[in-house]
Write a protein that binds this DNA or RNA. Structure first.
Lengths: 344, 344
DNA sequence: CTGTTTTTTTCAAACGTTTGCATTGAATAT
DNA sequence: ATATTCAATGCAAACGTTTGAAAAAAACAG
C-alpha cells in the first residue's frame, strides 16, 4: 500500500529552500527567525498537516513523557477509579499513561515491565499480579530500580521491596466492618476471603481476625472460605456456609462482588437480610447502593489513591540523592446500608 | 539526581574496543560475527542489564508496534471485555496497546488522537465520545486517515465516516428483548434510553420502537426516558414511570445498570418482579446473573468484538491500494432470566 | 567604501540502533 | 611470492528533530 509518508521538517525545508534548522525554529517561534519566514512556514505546515515526530524527540531528549501503569485487571470499579486519579494529575502535566493489563499473569507482568523500560517510559505504577507474590519473587523489578526509573506500588505490593507505595488501610476497613456487624448483634461472622497471597486479602483477613479476637468471639475455620473476587466464586462457598450445622449469622465479603453473590444465595434460601443474616462487602462500587437491600460496604478512595501515587511519583522525580521511599496509607470508610442494619 | 544512564551499544563497544556495529550484530546473533566475540558481548550485555532502546529503533524503522485504543470509559464490563479481545489477538503479535480514556470528552479525544499520531502509533481503535457526536463533527479524524493510519471504529461510531467498524447488532438485540417481554404478556413496556446521540442508544431505541409497532402496541412518549447509563440516573426516571396514572408493566433498560436501578425502585415500591413488572437490561454483565431476581438481559460479545476489530485492523494493514473498509456486525443474544419470566 | 553591528540563516553534532558496503587480516591456492 | 578467497570487523548513512556556534547577509555608521 502507498503509505503517505508523514511530512517531515526536511520536506518543508526543501519546499522553502532553507535548512531544517530554520524550519524547526520557525515552528517553535524562535525569536531569531524572520517574521515572514516564520509565518510562511507555519502556514504551510498547517496546510500539509505537519505533525512533530515525537519519537525522534524522545530519542534526542531522552524523555518520552510516558508512564507505565501495570495492573492485574481493569474490570472492577476500584481499579478504574485509581486510573482516573492518576490521569487527573498526570494528564494535565503532559504525561501519557500506558496502561498494561497483566490478567494476574506473572510472565506478562515481567514482559510488560521489560517492554516499558525498552520504550524508555519515565515511571511505573504497579499493582502486582496475583501469581507474582509467593516468595517475594521480585527480581523482575530490579531492572526497574536499577535504571533509577521511579516505581510506585499501588495497593498490591511486595512488602519487602523498597519503593514508594500508596495503599488503602484495608486492615482497619475490615476491622470496622466486622466491628459494625458485632455491634449490630451478629456473632457468628463468616468471611469470604480473597485470593491467597495478596496483601489486600491478608490485610482484610487480619482485620477480621483481630476484631473477632478483640470482642472475644471464637474464630471458626469453617467460617473462612476463599474466593477469587468474582461473583461466581462466592456461590458455592456461601452455600457451604449456610449448610453448616451452625451457619453464620453474618458474612463479611472480601469485596462487593462476593458479597452480592452471597446475597443472592441467602435470598434463594428465603433468608431475610439483615434480619436472618447480615452482609458487608468491600469497595463501595456503584451498584451496592442499589441492590435490594442495599449493601453495607467499605469504601476505598480509588481516585485519591491514584492522585497520591502521582504525587509520590513526582516527589521521587524531583528528589535528591538521598531519596527515601514514601509510604502513603489512606483510610477506608465504612458505609452502613441496609444489608447489615438490623433492628433489635 | 544521578540518573543511571541506560547502557548503550556504544558503551559496550567501548568496553570491547570494537565498533557499535559489531556489538549490534553480536547481540542479534548475526552469522558474520566470531563465536567468541558474540559470546563475550552477549554475556557482558546481560551482566550490565543492557536493554535495547526501542525509541531509536522506532525512529529508524518507522515502526512503533504500538496501537492506540481510545475509549470513553473503562468502567463497564463490556468495555473491558473488548480490550481483553484486542489484547488477546494483538499482544501475541508483539503489539503494545496504548489505552486512552476520553471520559466522554471531545477535546480529550481530539488531543489523544493527535498525541497518538505524533507518537507514530500504527493503528487506532476508536469508540467515540458522547460529546463528539452531534452533527457528524469528525474533522479530527481526517488527520488519522490522511496519514493512512488504520482506524477502526468500535461500537460507537460516526455513521458517515468511511472506515472499518466492528459493532454489535444492538437493534435486533433490543428487538428480541422487547419481543420477549411481549411474549411474556407485558403490554405497557417502557424504555430507559441511553444518552442521546450515540449509535448504540439510537439502535436500541429503534429496536424497541419497531418491535412495539410490529405487535401493534401503541407507543407512549411518557414511557421513554433518558439516562446516562449509570445506576443513579435511572432512579428518578423509574419513579416517574411508576407514578404515572397508567404505569408500565415492564421496563426495558438500555443497559444493565439502569435496569438494576429500576429493579431497586420497583422493589422499594413493593412490586414483585416479574409478576407486577418485568425487567430487561443490556450487556449481560456478571452481576446480572446474581441479582434477585436475576436480570434478563442482552449479551454483547465484547471479547469477540475486540478480536474482530483486531482482524479488521490486520486486514487493512495488509491491504492493497483498493482497500474497502469492512463492516462487521455481531449478533447480540437474549439471555432470559427471572426478571421477565412471568408465569401466566 | 570600509568597518561594525545586527539580523537571519546554515552547519554539524547529537540521540541509539541497524545495515549495505568497504576494509582488514588471515588463510589458502597458485 | 602473489593472487584469491573467506571470515570478521569497521565505516558511514539513515531515521527526525533540536541547538550551540559559525557564517552569511543585511543594515548602519563613519
Amino acid at each position: 500500500m502507498p503509505v503517505n509518508r508523514p511530512v517531515t521538517i526536511k520536506d518543508i525545508a526543501r519546499r522553502f529552500n532553507c535548512s531544517p534548522s530554520t524550519v524547526s525554529r520557525a515552528l517553535n517561534d524562535h525569536q531569531a527567525i524572520n517574521e515572514d519566514t516564520r509565518k510562511n512556514i507555519q502556514e504551510y505546515a498547517r496546510e500539509v498537516g505537519y505533525q512533530k515526530n515525537e519519537v525522534s524527540l524522545s530519542l534526542l531528549n531522552k524523555k518520552t513523557a510516558t508512564l507505565g501503569v501495570v495492573v492485574p485487571s481493569i474490570g472492577h470499579y476500584y481499579e478504574t477509579a485509581v486510573i482516573e486519579g492518576l490521569h487527573a494529575v498526570l494528564q494535565p502535566m503532559g504525561y501519557t499513561l500506558n496502561i498494561c493489563v497483566t490478567n494476574e499473569n506473572y510472565l506478562l507482568e515481567k514482559e510488560y515491565l521489560s517492554k516499558l523500560l525498552s520504550n524508555r517510559i519515565e515511571g511505573i505504577f504497579l499493582s502486582v499480579a496475583q501469581e507474582t507474590y509467593d516468595g517475594g519473587y521480585y527480581e523482575h523489578l530490579e531492572q526497574v530500580t536499577h535504571r533509577q526509573t521511579p516505581l510506585i506500588f499501588i495497593d498490591r505490593e511486595y512488602e519487602a521491596f523498597e519503593t514508594s507505595r500508596a495503599t488503602v488501610d484495608d486492615y482497619h476497613g475490615a476491622y470496622a466492618a466486622v466491628e459494625h456487624l458485632i455491634q449490630m448483634g451478629y456473632r457468628r461472622i463468616a468471611h469470604l476471603k480473597g485470593p491467597n497471597g495478596l496483601t489486600v486479602t491478608e490485610q482484610r483477613f487480619k482485620g477480621y481476625l483481630d476484631c473477632l479476637a478483640k470482642y472475644e468471639i471464637p474464630i471458626s475455620e469453617e467460617y473462612i472460605i476463599n474466593t477469587n473476587f468474582k461473583v461466581e466464586s462466592s456461590i458455592v462457598p456461601t452455600k457451604r456456609l449456610l449448610d453448616l450445622t451452625v451457619p453464620p449469622d453474618a458474612i463479611f465479603g472480601a469485596n462487593d462482588q462476593v458479597a452480592i453473590g452471597a446475597m443472592r444465595v441467602a435470598k434463594d434460601r428465603g433468608l431475610s437480610i439483615p434480619q436472618d443474616i447480615g452482609l458487608v462487602g468491600f469497595d463501595n462500587s456503584p451498584i451496592t447502593a442499589y441492590t435490594f437491600p442495599s449493601l453495607t460496604t467499605v469504601s476505598r478512595p480509588g481516585r485519591k489513591i491514584g492522585m497520591e501515587a502521582s504525587r509520590l511519583f513526582l516527589n521521587q522525580l524531583n528528589a535528591s540523592d538521598d531519596f527515601v521511599p514514601e509510604n502513603i496509607v489512606l483510610p477506608a470508610e465504612l458505609i452502613i446500608r441496609e444489608s447489615s442494619l438490623r433492628l433489635r
